[in-house]
Write a protein that binds this DNA or RNA. Sequence first.
DNA 1: CGTATGACGAGCC
DNA 2: AGGCTCGCCATAC
Length: 114
Amino acid sequence: MKVDAPTFRERVHAIARAIPRGRVITYGQIALLAGRPRGGREVGWIAHAGGAGIPWQRVVNRSGGVARGFSGGREGHSRALRRDGIRVGPEGRVDLKRYLWWPDARIRKRLRLS
DNA sequence: CGTATGACGAGCC
DNA sequence: AGGCTCGCCATAC
């Protein structure tokens, strides 16, 4: 059966849903995977628009920083990450060396990503 | 339709 | 390392 090509927003949602508990990904990475190398800002407002059942707290910026516009502000974002078992520093930063996630080949294939 | 805005990123200092 | 500037690009107004 023929299916329409997924929109950028749908790809972003699919990727965000695939992030495992205890790991994080960056806006830029999602944009790249979804086929828009400089679309970090877009991913940001897609995240801000929300989406039921999507663990947006696992999406952080390039510096590992939490989002100002998260529900509950930076504090809210930090709390949500800690509930995921992720350590968040006093400046609202996570250690990317430790928590950054990259989808493996199998997942990329399943989601039809680059 | 021109301007402003922003859950971003890379580069420079 | 951390702060600034500039580029990016869909939306909002």
